[in-house]
Amino acid sequence: MKNIIFVIALILTGATCPAQETTSRLITDLPKIFLSPGLSFHLQSPEPISYVDISPGFLKGDLPLANLLRLRLDKDSCSQLSPGLIGSITAVGETFIAQYQIFLLDDADLSRACVEMEIGEQHMRPIERSDISLSSAQISSHARSLLSRRESRPLRSVSKNGISLSLNGIYTAADLVFLDLNITNQGSIPYEIDQLKFEIVDKKINKATSYQSIPLPILYSLYPLGSFQSSFRNIYVLKKATFPAFKQLLISLSETQLSGRTASLSIDYRQVLQADTF
């Protein structure tokens, strides 16, 4: 009798349990894009697009800009296809994935063809990527907040050949280092930046040994390098790196003019360790 009651209880419990939610999506759930052969379609993304998947082989795509996907249907390849659903596309940004249905229109329905669309928030599904600690939007927001702060006494400064190079501050966020750098031109000739390099070098260079340096590429610059008359303040973002006490971070500046005015500023690793965090 107890066994019968137990079985009945299990049946009743199972009947009242909600169905398990699924994370899968059907192609019919995706927003639609209507294309016509011969017309280009542009998909704008709020973030750089790092991955694209296009299911139909007769649909060609490329990235003319980091945040712009261009699609085009080949007329000859589509001549044997019937109007309707022909496939899907997937675009992955830094923090989201977006997917769309692709519909083929016939020539009589050309007025419905899409030529441009922006990936809206309603089309985005969040995605976590282990290779990205901060999105471009987050990096830009941090950089602009630093630039909005009033300049204080620089951590390090050097002046040479009428050019001053000042480090206003060092800040860290996740695995990135933000450098607030100001360049001042004390001459009457505009200064046109040729190169601004960041590298890890030896503090003391022995002539008997070879000179070794490790370049650190600029991952993000709030403003592009160019020409300025008197002062140029900018935020540069580097990948966080560790280096021993006998090495230092060297910032080197050079110009394109024949005068070739240069300046170099060294930063001790201790200053990087003492950097403020967001």
Rank of each mutant, 00 (worst) to 15 (best):
R153W: 01
I200T: 06
S266A: 14
L179F: 03
L265W: 05
I205F: 11
E199V: 01
G187L: 12
A245L: 04
V177W: 13
N234F: 07
Q248D: 15
T209E: 09
G187K: 10
L176P: 08
S264C: 03
Q195L: 02
G260L: 00
L238A: 12
S148A: 15
S213E: 11
E192C: 09
F243A: 06
S254W: 04
Q271S: 10
R149V: 03
K160Y: 13
L265K: 12
I163T: 02
F178D: 04
T256V: 00
F198Q: 00
T242N: 13
T184M: 05
L222G: 07
G162Q: 02
G162S: 05
L265G: 03
S231H: 09
L273A: 07
S145A: 05
S264V: 12
G162M: 01
S254Q: 08
Q186E: 09
Y220C: 03
S157A: 12
L181S: 07
A245G: 05
F246C: 08
D194F: 14
V158E: 07
Y220P: 10
S157G: 04
S259D: 15
S231D: 07
T242G: 12
L147T: 11
S213Y: 04
R261K: 14
G162K: 01
S230Y: 11
L238V: 08
N234Q: 09
Q186V: 00
L167R: 14
F198R: 00
P190W: 03
